[in-house]
Simulated scan of single mutants.
Amino acid sequence: MDALTASMALLRLEGIGPARYWQLIEHFACPVRALQQFPQTLLLKLPDRAQSQWREFARLEAQSALLGWVEEEHARCAESGVQLLYCSDTDYPALLKEISRPPPILYLRGRRESLSLPQVAIVGARRATVAGLDNARSFAAELARAGFAITSGLALGVDAAAHQGALQEEGATIAVLGSGVDRLYPRRNQALAGQIVDRGGAIISELPLGSGAEAKNFPRRNRIISGLSMGVLLVEAALRSGSLITARLALEQNREVFAIPGSIHNPMAKGCHHLIREGATLVETSGDVALQLGGLLAEPTADITEQEVPLNQHQQFLLNMLAGGPRNIEQLARDTGESSGELIALLMQMELEGLLEQLPGGYQLTSRGAAYCTQTA
Score class of each variant (00 low, 15 high):
9 A>F: 12
17 G>K: 02
17 G>Q: 01
18 P>G: 04
30 C>Q: 14
31 P>Y: 00
34 A>L: 03
36 Q>V: 12
44 L>N: 05
50 A>G: 01
51 Q>W: 12
53 Q>R: 03
62 A>R: 08
63 Q>G: 03
67 L>Y: 13
69 W>C: 01
72 E>Y: 04
78 A>V: 09
87 C>D: 07
94 A>R: 08
94 A>K: 09
96 L>N: 02
107 Y>A: 02
110 G>K: 08
110 G>L: 07
123 V>P: 03
123 V>C: 08
124 G>V: 03
124 G>A: 08
132 G>C: 09
135 N>Y: 10
135 N>G: 13
149 A>F: 05
153 G>L: 10
154 L>D: 01
160 A>S: 14
161 A>S: 09
161 A>E: 05
164 Q>A: 15
165 G>Q: 10
167 L>F: 14
168 Q>L: 15
175 A>Q: 06
180 G>L: 13
182 D>C: 14
184 L>Q: 03
186 P>D: 07
187 R>W: 07
188 R>N: 06
193 A>V: 06
198 D>H: 12
204 I>C: 05
206 E>P: 07
214 E>A: 13
226 S>I: 15
227 G>T: 07
231 G>Y: 10
233 L>A: 11
246 T>H: 12
246 T>C: 12
247 A>I: 15
254 N>L: 08
265 H>R: 10
273 H>R: 06
289 V>E: 07
290 A>L: 06
292 Q>L: 15
299 E>R: 15
300 P>H: 13
301 T>Y: 03
305 T>E: 10
314 H>R: 10
322 L>V: 00
347 L>G: 08
355 L>G: 05
358 Q>M: 15
360 P>L: 03
368 R>W: 04
370 A>C: 00
377 A>D: 06
